[in-house]
């Protein structure tokens, strides 16, 4: 049965006079990998950050497995949740940031385990066991006692992925995970993301790596100027785009129509 894990409906976001999101709507099935692509400023990151309410949408609905994210109350009593109230909901959503944001005063294992202990109520041993397991998944178990500053960018990002996985989230969000990495380190991170996708995780990936999106994502959404321009199966949108704007964008980033690699 097709079960919609995530429903996004009519997402709007304005900063003062500037409208960044002008009505974004899409679904995500469980186990599906969705990629958001588009030029800088198109609103893809903002859209992603709205999903776990790091940005508060101006209007629109986000529903994760039947639960409304970020808003509470009903009718006239409806209001935005506070960060405190949002914490349990955010546990269900794992986020990986472009700049990793590993916590420098904690070693790798503590980075991965902290939230399990302080927000997940786990005992330290349990949390550490889980952390080691997640670090295994990203092939960095041996670095568990190191501090982030001693790791390469690619390694740090993989630790960040392990940290998000340790939440046992329903949904994983990746906000341009490789954009801040030196080129030779990009591959190791993409490799891990591909493994997660093949495992059947539900993921939304904002990325500039178009070929990777085509190979790994099930569906792709092309965004521009705060709206969804085109949406469909990854190969279709990227290799046979139907909209002119999509074609123009892909051409700019070096993906001609029919290019397969």
């Amino acid at each position: 049965m097709e079960h919609k894990l995530l429903k996004v409906d009519g997402l709007h976001k304005s900063y003062g006079a500037a409208q960044v999101l002008r009505g974004i709507s899409f679904d995500l099935k469980r186990g599906e990998t969705l990629s958001l692509i588009g030029p800088s400023g198109s609103g893809k990151s903002t859209c992603l950050r709205c999903l776990n309410f790091l940005e508060k949408p101006t209007s629109g609905e986000i529903v994760l497995e039947g639960e409304r994210i970020g808003r509470t109350g009903s009718g006239r009593g409806e209001r935005l949740m506070t960060d405190r109230e949002l914490a349990p909901q955010r546990r269900e959503i794992g986020m990986v940031f472009q700049l990793f944001y590993l916590w420098p005063h904690l070693n790798v294992r503590d980075n991965v385990a902290l939230a399990s202990i302080k927000a997940g109520g786990m005992h330290r041993d349990e949390a550490y066991a889980l952390a080691d397991e997640m670090l295994d998944k990203v092939h960095l178990r041996r670095k568990a006692d190191e501090y982030p500053e001693r790791l390469s960018g690619g390694q740090q990002q993989r630790v960040a992925i392990a940290r998000a996985l340790a939440q046992k989230p329903k949904l994983m969000l990746f906000d341009e995970p490789t954009s801040a990495l030196d080129p030779e380190l990009v591959g190791e991170v993409l490799g891990v993301i591909r493994e997660l996708a093949e495992e059947g995780r539900s993921m939304i990936l904002v990325t500039h790596e178009i070929r990777f999106a085509r190979d790994v994502a099930d569906r792709v959404i092309f965004m521009d100027g705060g709206v969804v321009v085109e949406e469909g199966p990854a190969c279709d949108v990227i290799e046979r785009p139907s909209m002119e704007r999509t074609r123009a964008f892909l051409g700019q980033v070096g993906i001609g129509a029919g290019l397969s690699k």
């Binding site: 405190r84 914490a87 940031f97 916590w103 927000a119």
Partner: peptide, 13 residues
């Protein structure tokens, strides 16, 4: 970003 990552991981403020 440090605080954001913490909130995203489900920690209360």
């Amino acid at each position: 970003g440090q605080r954001e990552a913490a909130l995203a991981a489900g920690l209360t403020p």
